[in-house]
Amino acid sequence: MPGLWQTSHSRRRFTWSDYRNWPEGERWELIDGVAYAMAPAPSTRHQQVALKLASRFEQKLSGKRCRPFTAPIDVKLSEHDVVQPDVLVVCDPAKITPTHIEGAPEVVVEVLSPATATKDLREKKALYGRYGVREYLVADPLENYLQRYRRGEDGTFEAPEIFGPQETLALLELEDVAIDLWEVFELPPPEAEPTSAEV
């Protein structure tokens, strides 16, 4: 039974077939065949930030080729790698199946939780780079900032760009998609620059 498996020390490499046959109601991810139990239900703050980001993608991508999705949805990267990002954007319709996403999304967003932050910034970041995610966004809902990783030509992510809550994030892989982060983090907008008459 999955609940008895050691989340990071199991000697067996599990597969997509194993994963699909586990009991409903339990949330797991596979990274290199190792089963990782998903954290308990995320905090309300986590959910608010994830929902804000997803709604902005939905609004900006309306009528366009790319489509956003939110967790829980399975993303199968290989027979031994299955994850459930908080938010993702897929631009290739062939990757969208009735049950899951088959292959790497163009954009993946993870909203950090204390229990999963290390995995998101280490194992999952390496995984996303290896399988071709072009842009990886990591939002911190407590400190109110966002990191953007862009995949380099060698298949690994470059050093992150940091965006504060008073900045606008222009997506690199999605044309004409820019997100005001103060709206995502539910903070006051930046003060307007004074006009020449006010100086």
Rank of each mutant, 00 (worst) to 15 (best):
P2T: 07
G3Q: 07
G3A: 08
T7K: 09
T7E: 13
S8Y: 13
H9Y: 08
H9Q: 14
S10N: 13
R11I: 09
R12H: 10
W16N: 06
W16F: 13
D18I: 02
N21I: 10
W22K: 07
G25I: 02
L30T: 02
I31H: 03
D32Q: 10
G33F: 03
V34E: 08
V34K: 06
Y36S: 04
Y36N: 04
Y36F: 13
Y36M: 05
A37I: 08
M38A: 08
M38P: 01
P40V: 01
P42I: 08
S43L: 08
T44Y: 13
R45S: 09
R45G: 06
R45A: 09
H46Q: 03
A50M: 15
A50Q: 14
L51K: 13
F57C: 02
E58G: 11
E58Q: 13
E58S: 11
E58L: 10
E58W: 09
S62W: 13
K64T: 10
K64P: 00
R65I: 08
R65P: 03
R65Y: 04
P68A: 11
T70H: 12
P72Q: 04
P72Y: 05
I73L: 10
I73S: 02
D74I: 02
K76D: 00
L77C: 01
L77H: 01
V83I: 06
V83W: 01
V83Y: 00
V83E: 01
V87D: 05
V89Q: 00
V90I: 00
D92I: 04
A94W: 07
A94Q: 11
A94P: 04
K95E: 05
K95T: 05
K95C: 05
K95S: 06
K95F: 03
I96N: 01
T97L: 07
T97R: 06
T99H: 10
T99L: 06
H100N: 13
I101G: 00
I101C: 00
I101K: 00
E106A: 01
V107T: 03
V107A: 02
V109Y: 10
L112H: 05
S113M: 06
T116M: 02
T118N: 15
D120F: 15
L121V: 15
L121M: 15
E123F: 15
K124L: 13
K124H: 14
K124C: 11
K124Q: 14
K125V: 12
L127Q: 04
Y128C: 09
Y128L: 11
G132V: 07
E135F: 12
D140F: 11
L142I: 14
N144K: 08
N144M: 08
Y145G: 03
L146C: 10
Q147W: 15
R148W: 08
R148P: 05
Y149I: 07
Y149R: 07
R151Y: 03
R151T: 03
R151K: 04
R151F: 02
D154S: 05
G155V: 06
T156M: 09
T156K: 10
E158V: 07
E158N: 11
A159I: 05
A159H: 05
T168G: 06
T168V: 14
L169A: 05
L172E: 15
E173I: 11
E173T: 15
L174V: 04
E175F: 07
E175N: 08
D176W: 02
V177N: 01
I179A: 01
D180V: 11
D180S: 12
L181W: 05
L181P: 03
F185Y: 12
F185N: 11
E186D: 14
L187W: 03
P189G: 05
E191G: 09
A192W: 09
A192V: 14
A192G: 12
A192K: 13
E198G: 08
